[in-house]
């Protein structure tokens, strides 16, 4: 016999289901009055430091149809590369930037729009700098365990080429699945594919 480790096992995930909006974006689905506004709806205010950017995201199923019932959360560093989190020990992040956003995909178009700022760079575990990125977490009906991925920026070619996470992707043809496109209006467009030829690289982190 040895001493028991006395560890517990993580509560198993279950799908967010089709009615995820009721709990997480009630105002979006017409349950008004419960909360003043949906949590994560606004990431920036007038005093937030950094370059304003718009990110438009969609999630596609295996037939190429956009999910109209998904919910996406994003998490990113501030303009100086600091996270607004108690676990951020490198300095104080911009108090006017939460770094966290939550949006339901539109029930018609399947698109959701984040108004945020361009993130600064943050270090990898070994101290090398990572390319600027935004973390995505996707839940929906039919997704049993929330999916993690990242969005990188198309004009950061040198930083992307040296990024330690992107470098870990064995099949180089899949790297572009994590790099947003830039639309004519300047917005970043990030299409996430759950399956198929362009299946997004999802992360076990």
């Amino acid at each position: 016999m040895v001493q028991p480790l006395n560890r517990f096992r993580e509560t198993p995930s279950q799908t967010a289901g089709p009615y995820v909006h009721i709990g997480m974006t009630p105002n979006f689905c017409g349950i008004e009055g419960a909360y003043a506004q949906d949590l994560g709806a606004l990431m920036v205010n007038g005093k937030t430091q950094g370059e304003r950017i718009t990110v438009r995201a969609r999630v596609f199923d295996g037939t190429g149809t956009p999910l109209r019932d998904a919910l996406i959360e994003i998490w990113q560093a501030d303009a100086a590369g600091l996270y607004n989190s108690p676990s951020e020990m490198r300095g104080a992040a911009d108090p006017n930037f939460s770094g966290w956003g939550r949006k339901a995909t539109d029930m018609e178009s399947g698109e959701c729009i984040f108004e945020t700022i361009r993130p600064g760079r943050v270090p990898f575990r070994d101290g090398r700098m990572q390319a600027p990125h935004i973390s995505f977490w996707i839940v929906a009906r039919g997704i049993n365990l929330g999916l993690h991925t990242r969005m990188y920026f198309p004009e950061e070619e040198a930083a992307n080429a040296a990024d330690p996470l992107l470098a870990r992707i064995e099949h180089r043809s899949r790297v572009p699945t994590l790099i947003a496109a830039r639309a004519d209006d300047g917005a970043y467009v990030f299409d996430i594919h759950l399956q198929g030829e362009h299946e997004t690289v999802f992360l076990d982190v």
Binding site: W75, A77, Y83, N84, S85, S87, E88, S98, G99, W100, V122, P123, F124, R125, Q130, H133, S135, H148, R150, L165, R168, I169, V201, F202, L203, D204, V205
Partner: peptide
């Protein structure tokens, strides 16, 4: 793609 956490995953609001 399995990856030990970076500060991006360790932190949170």
């Amino acid at each position: 793609l399995s990856l030990d956490n970076t500060i991006t995953e360790i932190t949170g609001p």
